Simulated assay, not measured.
Amino acid sequence: MPDAQALFSLHDVSVRYPIRRGFFQRVVGHVGAVDGVSFDLRRGETMALVGESGCGKSTLGRAILRLEQVADGTIKATGKPAATRKDLARKAQVVFQDPLGSLDPRWTIGNLIGEGIDVHGTARGAERDSIVRDLLKQVELPASAFHKFPHQLSGGQQQRVAIARALAMRPELIVLDEATSALDVSVQAQILNLLKDLQAEYNLTYLFISHDLTVVGQFADRVAVMYLGRIMEMGDAADVLSAPRHPYTRALLASSLKVDPDMRIDRVPLLTGDVPSPRNPPSGCRFRTRCPQAQAGCAELRHRMVPAPNGRETAACLANGDL
């Protein structure tokens, strides 16, 4: 049953890309980037999506924003089907990993931040410029940035512009797609603190897409661990990262820096081998081909989420005694 405070609800969402061949580009198959994902994004929370590169994190974020077409399942906003992409822009915005790549180098910062205001006609002239200057102040940029161009700013300042641009539409959800991974550690901390302050002020919901479990442990309220298009484990970030239940989550944590220096992580074999092709994923548990605890029955195991303590959910796993 969807959470009463859910801002967005995902139910069995799948995204597939067609494989085309030949002169006429006939569709000869599909690549499943996201396969049967379900969860709620709750008002005012930070939900993190973590996993290895290519697991489907960014694709799922783009599907929520309707930048990718959903093949199966539904994504509902506050209990209703998502509106058109233009209408959805008022509710959900995105901040990308590379701010400079997402900002038109020919436009001034004032015009970049004010673009959404211009498109939707929410303010004009002096009122519009006043809103943009207020946004610059909110993201802690000097007023002089209004007339500058993106290349005249540092990487951290460019990301602040991207955040201000997202805020211009007063959204309820912001998808942060690796938004801090390209920044220096000190700048990263400043941006994360800014995002927390903005969240507290505007009751924002964040979908935080990242591969950095240390940052996730400090920033997220809940976390969903993805592997090859499916959720392997989901729950409160502190619980999942301190006591992972699924073998993939344990292996992922063992392969990364510790989230907490005082946290003990049982030693498990590090992840080895390549992630299987999403065009032809393994049967049963998709992690079985790399899992140190794989059993013969894993090839036949049906993917389903099993309730765990403290409201967590874990993909069915024979190593955990799930049948």
Rank of each mutant, 00 (worst) to 15 (best):
Q5F: 06
F8W: 01
S14G: 04
V15Y: 00
I19H: 01
G22Q: 14
R26I: 10
V28C: 13
A33H: 01
V34D: 01
R43C: 08
L49T: 07
G56N: 03
I64E: 00
R66F: 09
R66G: 07
E68L: 08
T74H: 13
T78V: 06
P81W: 11
A82F: 00
T84R: 15
R85F: 13
R85D: 14
A92G: 07
G110R: 04
I113D: 07
I113P: 05
V119Y: 09
V119M: 11
R128I: 13
L135H: 03
V139Q: 00
A143P: 03
S144F: 00
A145I: 05
A145G: 07
Q152I: 11
G156M: 06
V161P: 10
I163V: 15
M169I: 06
E172F: 11
E172W: 00
I174F: 12
A179M: 08
S181V: 05
V185D: 04
V185M: 06
S186Q: 06
A189N: 04
L192E: 05
N193H: 08
N193T: 04
L194F: 07
K196P: 00
D197I: 06
D197A: 13
E201M: 08
L204Y: 01
T205Y: 08
Y206F: 15
L207V: 09
F208Q: 01
S210R: 03
S210L: 11
V215H: 00
V215I: 11
V215N: 01
R222W: 13
V223E: 12
V223C: 12
A224V: 11
M226L: 15
L228C: 05
D236H: 11
D239Q: 15
V240N: 08
V240G: 11
H246P: 03
P247M: 12
Y248G: 03
A251P: 05
A254P: 03
S256R: 10
V259K: 04
P261Q: 05
M263A: 15
M263V: 12
D266R: 11
D266W: 05
V268G: 00
L270Y: 09
G273H: 12
P278A: 02
P281T: 08
C285W: 01
F287W: 02
R288L: 14
A296L: 08
H303P: 13
P307F: 14
N310K: 15
C317N: 07
L323A: 13
